[in-house]
Design a binder for these strands. Sequence first.
DNA 1: TGTGAAAATGAAAACGTTTACACAACTTGG
DNA 2: CCAAGTTGTGTAAACGTTTTCATTTTCACA
Lengths: 356, 356
Amino acid sequence: MPGKRTKQPRLKKRAGVFDVAREAGVSVATVSRAFNLPDLVSEDVRRRVLATAQRLGYAANPAAKALRSRKTHIVGAAIPTLDYAIFAKMINHFQDTFAQHGYITIVATTGFEHANVFDKVKTLVDRGAEALLLVGAIEDPALVRYLKEPHIPVVTTYSYIPEEIVPCIGFDNYAATQSAMEYLADLGHRNFAMIAGSPKGSDRQRTRIAAYRDFIAERKLEGAENIVIRDFTIRDGAEAMRALLDKYPDTTALVCNTDVVAFGALSESRRLGIRIPQDISVVGFDDAEYAAQLDPPLTTIAVPAEEMGRLSADMLHMSLSTGESPRFVRLDSHLIVRKSACPPRGLKQLRLASAV
Amino acid sequence: MPGKRTKQPRLKKRAGVFDVAREAGVSVATVSRAFNLPDLVSEDVRRRVLATAQRLGYAANPAAKALRSRKTHIVGAAIPTLDYAIFAKMINHFQDTFAQHGYITIVATTGFEHANVFDKVKTLVDRGAEALLLVGAIEDPALVRYLKEPHIPVVTTYSYIPEEIVPCIGFDNYAATQSAMEYLADLGHRNFAMIAGSPKGSDRQRTRIAAYRDFIAERKLEGAENIVIRDFTIRDGAEAMRALLDKYPDTTALVCNTDVVAFGALSESRRLGIRIPQDISVVGFDDAEYAAQLDPPLTTIAVPAEEMGRLSADMLHMSLSTGESPRFVRLDSHLIVRKSACPPRGLKQLRLASAV
DNA sequence: TGTGAAAATGAAAACGTTTACACAACTTGG
DNA sequence: CCAAGTTGTGTAAACGTTTTCATTTTCACA
């Protein structure tokens, strides 16, 4: 036949522990030990085994390894989405530091749907995850129940909640937004407003909103209910700004719960001829990469995304190797003052005058 | 003793296929089939098995499953970083559509180091990845050799290269930057410059740079070498803009190889009092979320990140189930005209006059 | 040089599935 | 009513490691 197929020369199976053993003249047990318990095998044998393994291109089959040793070396992360820079950055570092310990990370995205997270978590566990990273407070009662049974190490990030059922590695959202407001209040502002994300499904939004309301109540300021809820896209931020100007025209101090929406608010203000910060002061949340480059540079709250990722990984890894439970850790978040806030109109002169 | 420890009641092992079999009064083979080859088992038995499985909370051990069936249901992706929105978005969709088929995605980040990618790829397949997503042209000779042996389905994204050794699902970077330049040239520009990323380790940068040079050579324009190389951060973009104004002050048309640096260039221009687009027209690359919200809204090239992720997943999945190799597909990338480019200074009037 | 402990190794069981094979119980067409 | 499929099911052998347990070798010390 003319069209003779190039036949596979021989489906040469990947070398297994057995092949290495034969080639190195030892038993399979010794090969296994040479890799996993090197102290138990004599110097020269170990070297010989590793060398032949190298030569044969041996790599242990992870499935067999996992099956027998009951260690998958897989960890899981359930996050809302990878499309938000702040989550992507956290996962990037989480994954990276776990990779250094020989673990792979599988991530499940819940799309901000609380209904999803229990399912996703179960999927992760069923898939063999030995530890879990979650974000935010644990809300789903079914998940609470599930995590209450002693399973595997879990941490939750972003929110620092001392009474949470699993260790938190996060920051104090309440204090963070109040510090921003305090800054604004100290500048002389009395008319506040907030652009927030949906409180449904995000404890972070809820506590930031609560912080906002409480602050206003305590100081007897204006705008306790001047909150507009939008999704976190720049476009939504712009739209929110319009809504806000329409409904709460007296606002002089705006706190945005995300730099993304702050970005949108700034853009829209420019289009509308509203000057930031002269007409309205705004502060953001996250300290996104672009925050410093906006016009004006955005005063915002820096969030330790990288650190949360890295520290979560370290904690969980420690927990996996020593068995002790991860600790609660409250990371720092602080206001980064740039140029998007100033005293309200007319107050600057007063201040300067009184300073004389 | 007062501090009596709550002892584990009994480490009840997770239910296995054997338990389900016993409870359902069938053999383990039938249980397995009820899940994996449902057509082979009678209606009522299947229902009974699934019900008992449900009741016992049975979930197949993925390691055992993988070991025996030689299917890990894991796919791998090697990307430069998750910290770039464009990669994060692609992976997000890749992972998501593969998850719908029951596969999990493990990602390895190479940090733009070409030296890393071979290692990372090997790690991924050693970890059991059944298919692979790569980004960009395959450069490392060792990797080329490795992928030439018939291993597992692989696609590479971002660059469409018909002669690549593995199927590409990308767009034509060359044509894309030339279309942007054509737009600028049609506007009347003759003095070009480019802010590029390092050509080392990125074929995309190389082909965009080549496209730039070729275009200028063909049309006998100015600035064939007016290229400044920087990393892709907003700050670098700003810095690049300064360098560029310093070294190539005649520039009227700037093509940025990333919206991120375009962002930086725009910011820096504002600070420097350079008006965009009146003094310098700029086009970006990526159509980042914020592109439309910049001041001025950025004219840029839309890149099909989502589609690349989704389509790669679909292709690879098809390849896994049917055995046929993924196809090369050239996706569309097109210029999105917004407000950051206009005819060069003085030309507008001429044009209007001649149009009469 | 003998002895007991420690160190190094090997044989074989176990991990929890899928699947090749065998077989029984039904259909169907003659 | 029998032969030949078909369909549904079970038994037992893989899959490639790690790990238990037993055994041999080495070593230190009396």
